[in-house]
Write a protein that binds this DNA or RNA. Structure first.
Length: 775
DNA sequence: GCAAGGTC
């Protein structure tokens, strides 16, 4: 029998072929697409990998003009399927024609069902030939089992996913066009609205409001130190919200010289290992290491395609039975983790930890091969090591902790103390990313008297909640059911690229806030988390056969029509609010050439500051790189051009002239003449990644650069180095050649020469302060 | 040029 297998991705096609063919496969091309062939018993197999959805929904071309087509028209407009990978589809057409059986072997989830079915439908495959293989890991056991136990594709499940596609496109396109048109943001600077991105943005704006509106409350803590070693105990009524009450308590016990131990307890407990890695957990852990979810995802994908880790997009936190944990450890045995792997393999049995979620599409993320830090470098290695260490932790024994507790009578008042100590490291030995906070409490016994070393009352204030960072936002999105493991980091990326949010701790921009305000007021449920929850319910009903795709789509269209009408009726108010916010966040000031408006502009090659009268006036300035830039009303004292507020990591916020060539800037940033080209000036700059360095202003003609320390004030103007002619820079007391390879630096083995006299008083002070922070 | 969902 001739059998055609369709997988969701190229890697799955390779893995399945290897498993089913025992390694004897051939790779060829059909219609330009890669196809793997092999024989197995009587059967001839062809395996082809898709690239996820090879079809995308979109409106026909005649709806493309945003200004000419009223957005409402899109509500009931037809949506058509546009093929994104013609060669793959053509290959499937011709292979299916000559096959007796077509097996859909896409991921075992809702989207996988649709990806498979939409493909065979579009390829016009005879449906009586179509079968479905379902496996939750690409292991021999699972795949062999799935191919022995073929089932039928689930059309209702695919319908559920298709309903989502149709609804998301309609709502997204209609509302996106409306807000963009009404606020005059057409073309490259369009604004966007969507079922997932808008509620996510609202999480950020709501948190911002909470912080802005926060009123700190004072509270008081009564604490004391006791015994010879001075262990700390707290009053059992802490915290006190009323100073009178805490004062009264202090008056009662404040003079006590001795306290009596009322009770004392000590117990040992297991401290269980963390769960296996799902995408969300991996991304939040990476974020803690300073690798953003977007970057971490990219690195994890690279590691996956080169065979070092398993598929990185998964919600699963339970290892499937079919996965050999010992096998994984054995593979790590000849790596840099051989010692750790060996220790765990030496255990009698391996009982892995398990998380709360178990899914059918992929196993949790685990290492699939040994890598070496010589071959894999930088952040990629850090992600790999994170995956390995997490895996080791999940198969390692629990740690043991000793918990102690006591209560004290202090002049008639009750105090409590707790202590914890790690007795055996267990999994913590392999996964050092969760710190164990030890706190000491000596061994005591009831009735024992201990010395009161001191008693004090501390005044504190409640603090506002933290802003989200990308990691905590991803976690919150998962908790609320917003987006999927594969899209959440992308959605957050969208919020940044639309300039709705900024900064590492996400703060909304004025336009982000204005958009949420407008949509909350007139956009129906589009900023509500409940929108997704409702859609999920409907999808569930479609999958169960309780509702039809058409019914759900019609219902959604009617809702959208109402919302669109409401937005249209209030288009002026919505548009004005957003325009005002955009002005505030983009308007830099007057153009020095034509008197027009200078604005922050978006472009394909990055953002910049440009004149609104373009092309009549081409005045433009670069936007300070890798910084958060805010507008100000101020103008430069030297040249009267507008000023910017620049906020950078590791630097204090600074107001500076928009013109990098203004002497107010160059005095601060220029270090001296370029020794390489003799034309340019060596200037302090920031790389895309936010790293400070010195580079020649004649770039790209001259590529001279020097590394600079990331923190602290640096001044130039010390003249050229007598040895190498590179500028000499000063950092407060210290003065040295900027060129790391300069013999003057080698001679002192990196140590700077002592500067006899500081040039500027202010610079000395700042530099001292900054360098004092460094170890 | 719009969404969100796959994957590269």
């Amino acid at each position: 029998m001739k059998r055609l297998v369709i997988t969701e991705k190229a890697n799955a096609a390779r893995r399945i072929s290897t498993i089913l063919s025992d390694g004897k496969q051939e790779t060829g091309k059909v219609e330009g697409a890669t196809v793997i062939t092999f024989s197995r018993g009587e059967d001839e197999f062809s395996v082809i990998g898709l690239r996820g959805h090879i079809i995308e929904l979109d409106y026909p071309d005649e709806y493309n003009n945003w200004s000419k087509v009223p957005p409402e028209e899109l509500i009931y407009a037809p949506q058509e399927k546009k093929v994104k990978a013609e060669s793959i589809l053509a290959a499937i057409r011709s292979l299916a024609e000559e096959s007796d059986q077509v097996i859909i072997a896409t991921d075992y989830d809702r989207e996988g069902e649709l990806i498979g079915l939409e493909t065979v439908r579009l390829a016009a495959v005879d449906m009586s030939k179509v079968r479905r293989a379902r496996f939750s890991a690409l292991t021999k056991v699972e795949v062999e089992g799935a191919f022995q136990d073929l089932t039928s594709p689930d059309e209702r499940l695919a319908d559920a996913a298709e309903a989502r596609q149709i609804i998301d496109l309609a709502w997204g396109a209609v509302l996106t066009r409306m807000v963009s048109l009404y606020s005059g943001q057409v073309g490259r600077n369009f604004l966007s609205v969507g079922r997932v991105q808008s509620p996510t943005l609202r999480l950020v704006t709501d948190r911002h409001r909470e912080i802005e509106d926060f009123v700190p409350q004072p509270y008081w803590l009564i604490k004391g130190r006791f015994g010879e070693q001075g262990f700390e105990a707290e009053h059992s009524d802490n915290p006190f919200w009323d100073k009178g009450a805490s004062d009264a308590k202090m008056a009662v016990c404040g003079d006590a010289r001795e306290a009596e131990v009322l009770d004392y307890s000590m117990e040992e407990k297991d401290d269980y290992p963390p769960s296996p890695f799902s995408t969300t957990i991996l991304l939040t852990e990476a974020n803690r290491l300073g690798i953003s979810p977007g970057a971490a995802m990219k690195l994890a994908e690279d590691l996956y395609t080169s065979g070092y880790i398993s598929y990185p997009r998964t919600d699963n936190t339970v290892y499937p039975k079919s996965l050999s944990l010992k096998g994984v450890l054995n593979r790590l045995a000849d790596s840099e983790f051989s010692k750790e792997a060996g220790e765990i393999l030496a255990q009698e049995s391996i009982r892995p930890s398990r998380g709360k979620r178990m899914t059918t599409d992929h196993p949790p993320i685990y290492p699939t091969a040994a890598a070496s830090s010589k071959k894999i470098k930088g952040d990629k290695w850090r992600i790999y090591e994170l995956v390995v260490r997490r895996f080791l932790a999940t198969v390692a024994p629990a740690a043991r902790v000793e918990l102690r507790g006591c209560s004290l009578d202090v002049g008639g008042e009750r105090f409590e103390a707790k202590g914890q100590r790690l007795i055996s490291e267990g999994w913590r030995r392999y996964y050092p990313h969760y710190r164990f906070e030890e706190s000491h409490l000596p061994e005591l016994e009831a009735g024992q008297k201990v010395e009161v070393k001191d008693l004090s009352m501390e005044e504190h204030e409640t603090r506002p909640p933290y802003r989200y960072n990308q990691g905590s936002l991803i976690q919150e999105m998962e908790r609320l059911g917003l987006g999927t493991k594969s899209t959440r980091h992308d959605i957050i990326g969208k919020l940044y690229s639309r300039n709705y949010v900024q900064g590492k701790s996400l703060a909304p921009t004025p336009s982000g806030e204005a958009l949420v305000r407008g949509m909350r007021k007139y956009g129906g449920q589009i900023t509500d988390v409940g929108m997704t929850a409702r859609l999920e319910e409907d999808m569930e009903k479609i999958a169960l056969g309780e509702k039809s795709l058409d019914y759900v789509v019609n219902e959604s269209q009617e809702m959208l029509a109402e919302v669109a009408e409401e937005i249209k009726a209030n288009s002026k108010e919505i548009g004005e609010e957003i325009r005002k916010a955009l002005h505030e966040q983009q308007h830099i000031g007057r153009c020095p050439d034509c008197g027009g408006d200078l604005n922050i502009k978006r472009s394909r090659r990055g953002n910049f500051i440009g004149c609104e009268s373009y092309p009549d006036c081409a005045k433009a300035y670069p936007l300070p790189r890798s910084a958060m830039v805010q507008t100000t009303e101020a103008v430069c004292e030297v040249c009267s051009k507008p000023m910017l507020r620049v906020i950078r990591r590791a630097q204090p916020p600074a107001e500076q002239c928009v013109d990098p060539e203004c002497s107010s800037n160059t005095e601060r940033t220029d270090l001296g003449d370029c020794p390489k080209c003799g034309e340019g000036t060596v200037r302090m700059m920031f790389s895309r990644a936010g790293k400070r360095f010195a580079g020649c202003t004649a770039w790209p003609e001259c590529d001279q650069t020097y590394p600079l320390p990331p923190r602290g004030r640096i001044d130039g103007g010390e003249g050229p180095c007598p040895e190498c002619a590179a500028p000499v820079i000063s950092m407060g007391e210290r003065s040295q050649c900027v060129n790391m390879e300069c013999p003057t630096r080698a001679k002192n083995s990196g140590k700077a020469t002592k500067k006899p006299s500081a040039k500027k008083g202010a610079s000395k002070k700042t530099a001292k302060k900054a360098s004092a922070k460094k170890p």
